[in-house]
Amino acid sequence: MANLQVVTAQETVSIPLKSGATLLHLIQTESVPWGFNCLRGTCARCRCQVLSGQDGLQPPTEAEELRLRKKELAEGFRLACQAIVKDVEEDIIIQYTPYR
């Protein structure tokens, strides 16, 4: 089974992928420090960049398209509370990239 590789400033954590789960849900199951607030895609505190495995995620949600700029989406940025795993065949690598 493939894994979600979560890269933070402190560590890289490997979490088994689960189809239908949001990235944030998977991150929370392993108690990885990750900022979030609303869970609806409006605050964008959970923003991350998908470094590899973008094809394993469902397309961006309406909330992501409203909150993230087109350039951000093109560069692989997603909201962890909205990005849903669709395929567990290959690893997905993300980096925590909150707005500063």
Rank of each mutant, 00 (worst) to 15 (best):
M1K: 14
M1S: 13
M1W: 11
M1G: 14
A2E: 02
N3I: 05
L4P: 06
L4C: 09
Q5A: 13
Q5L: 15
Q10C: 10
Q10G: 10
E11Q: 15
E11S: 12
T12L: 09
I15Q: 05
I15C: 08
I15F: 06
P16C: 09
P16L: 04
L17R: 00
K18N: 11
K18F: 01
S19T: 12
S19F: 04
G20C: 06
T22S: 12
L24Y: 08
H25W: 11
L26P: 00
I27S: 04
I27E: 04
I27G: 04
Q28R: 14
Q28A: 15
Q28F: 11
Q28H: 13
Q28Y: 10
T29F: 14
T29N: 12
E30K: 11
S31R: 11
S31I: 14
V32H: 04
W34A: 04
W34M: 02
G35D: 14
F36Y: 12
F36M: 06
F36P: 03
N37D: 15
N37T: 11
N37E: 15
C38M: 11
C38L: 08
L39W: 14
R40V: 13
G41R: 03
T42C: 08
T42H: 13
C43E: 00
A44M: 05
A44S: 09
C46W: 05
C46F: 09
C46Y: 07
R47S: 02
R47H: 02
Q49D: 01
Q49E: 01
V50L: 06
L51W: 01
L51Q: 10
L51Y: 08
S52M: 10
G53A: 11
Q54I: 11
D55F: 03
D55L: 00
L57G: 03
L57A: 03
L57C: 08
Q58G: 03
P60S: 06
P60Y: 07
P60Q: 07
E62M: 13
A63S: 13
A63W: 01
E64H: 10
L66S: 10
R67D: 02
R67S: 14
L68W: 00
R69F: 02
R69V: 02
K70T: 05
K71T: 12
E72Y: 01
E72P: 01
L73G: 00
L73C: 06
L73N: 06
A74G: 02
A74E: 05
A74R: 03
E75Q: 10
E75T: 01
G76C: 03
G76S: 02
A80N: 06
A80Q: 07
Q82F: 06
Q82I: 04
A83P: 00
A83C: 07
I84R: 08
I84M: 08
I84L: 10
I84Q: 10
I84Y: 04
I84E: 03
V85I: 15
K86T: 11
K86L: 08
V88G: 09
E90V: 15
E90Y: 12
I92K: 03
I92P: 00
I93W: 13
I93A: 07
I94Q: 02
I94H: 04
Q95E: 13
Q95S: 14
T97Q: 10
T97D: 08
T97I: 07
P98V: 01
Y99S: 12
Y99G: 11
R100D: 10
R100N: 09
